[in-house]
C-alpha cells in the first residue's frame, strides 16, 4: 500500500513535467534540456515569497508560476526561437547552455542549501498500512485536476484543437491559417509553466536543492521516451509506470536483500534502455505523432 502511495506521489510530479515536455516535442519537435531549471525557478521563487518574505502560500505559488512562465518565455526568445527552424538539434545545445546558466544563477541567488516551502510539521494520515501527509493528498488531487484540465483544453477548446492539429501535421495546420509562430511560443510557455508547478510541488512535498535540475529533466525525458515521443497521454502513463518501477526497485526485498535507495533512479533509466531496445517507439508510440 505504501508503495502505491509513493508511486502516486512521485508519478504525479513526473506526469506534470512530462506533459509539458511532450507538448513541446509534439508541436516544435525540439528537446528542451533546461526544463528542470524552469521547475527550480518556480520552486525557489515560491520558497522566497513564502519563507523569507512571509507572504501567504497561494500568493507564493502564484508568484512561482508567473516567474516560471516569464523565464520560459525569455528562454524561448533567446535560446530556442533563433535556432529551431535552422536545425531541430540546435536547441538541444542552446538549452544545455541555458540550463548551466540558470543553475549558476539559482546557486548564486538562493545559495547551496536545501529549501522547503513548508517548514511546519506535516499532518499525517493513515490509509490502511500506508502513511501520507495532507499536503501529499492535496498535491495528488491537484495533479488529477491539472491533467483533467489539460485534457479538456486539448480536446474541447479551439486552441487545443489547433495544438493537436499542429502535432498531427504542422504544414497542413499552417495551410489552414494556424500561426505556428504564435502557437510554438504559447506551447513553450505552457510547458515552462507546468515545469514551474512541478517545482513548487517538489518544494512543498520535499526539499529543493540547486543541483536538482538535471535529475528532474532526465526523469521527464525518460517518461517522454517511454510514452512515445510527443504522445502526451503516453508520457503521463509512463511517468506513473516509471515511478512504480523505482518504488518497487528499492521498496521490496530482491533475493533477500533491499537495493540501496541511491540506485532508485538508475533502475528506472536501465528499464528505459531495455524498453527502447525492445520497442524504440515507446510504450504507446506510433510511426505518426499524436496528442
Amino acid at each position: 500500500m505504501q508503495l502505491l502511495v509513493n508511486t502516486l506521489i512521485a508519478g504525479s510530479f513526473a506526469a506534470i513535467m512530462a506533459t509539458g515536455l511532450a507538448l513541446v516535442y509534439g508541436v516544435l519537435r525540439v528537446f528542451n534540456l533546461a526544463l528542470g531549471q524552469f521547475a527550480l525557478v518556480g520552486g525557489y521563487v515560491t520558497w522566497w515569497l513564502v519563507q523569507p518574505l512571509g507572504l501567504p502560500l497561494p500568493v507564493g505559488i502564484l508568484g512561482g508560476i508567473v516567474c516560471g512562465a516569464l523565464v520560459s518565455w525569455l528562454s524561448f526568445e533567446i535560446a530556442v526561437r533563433p535556432f529551431y527552424k535552422r536545425h531541430p538539434l540546435l536547441p538541444l545545445v542552446s538549452t544545455i547552455a541555458l540550463s548551466q546558466i540558470l543553475d549558476g544563477l539559482i546557486q548564486l541567488i538562493f545559495k547551496e542549501q536545501t529549501r522547503s516551502i513548508l517548514i511546519r510539521a506535516k499532518e499525517m494520515v493513515h490509509l490502511g498500512s500506508a502513511v501520507i501527509s495532507m499536503e501529499q493528498i492535496k498535491l495528488i488531487i491537484f495533479t488529477v485536476v491539472l491533467l483533467s484540465a489539460t485534457a479538456w483544453i486539448l480536446h474541447s477548446t479551439s486552441i487545443g484543437r489547433r495544438i493537436r492539429a499542429t502535432v498531427a501535421h504542422s504544414q497542413a495546420a499552417e495551410s489552414l491559417g494556424i500561426s505556428s509562430a504564435l502557437l510554438h511560443r504559447l506551447v513553450f510557455i505552457i510547458s515552462g509553466t507546468l515545469a514551474a508547478i512541478a517545482g513548487i510541488y517538489v518544494g512543498i512535498d520535499q526539499n529543493l536543492t540547486p543541483v536538482l535540475g538535471f535529475t528532474i529533466t532526465i526523469k521527464a525525458y525518460a517518461a517522454l521516451i517511454a510514452g512515445g515521443k510527443g504522445n502526451i497521454w503516453g508520457a503521463v502513463i509512463a511517468s506513473y509506470f516509471i515511478a512504480a518501477i523505482e518504488q518497487l526497485a528499492v521498496g521490496i526485498k530482491w533475493f533477500g536483500y533491499y537495493l540501496p535507495a541511491g540506485y532508485q533512479g538508475s533502475v528506472a533509466l536501465m528499464l528505459i534502455i531495455v524498453l527502447l531496445l525492445i520497442k524504440p517507439t515507446g510504450l504507446f508510440g506510433r510511426t505518426s505523432r499524436f496528442a
Binding site: S175, L176, G177
Partner: peptide
Amino acid sequence: PSLRARIGIGRVFQNFGIFRD
C-alpha cells in the same frame, strides 16, 4: 504560410494533410 492561408490560399497535400488522431 498561415497568413497566405488566411488571405485565401488553400492546400491539399500529397501525403494526406489530415489530422489522423
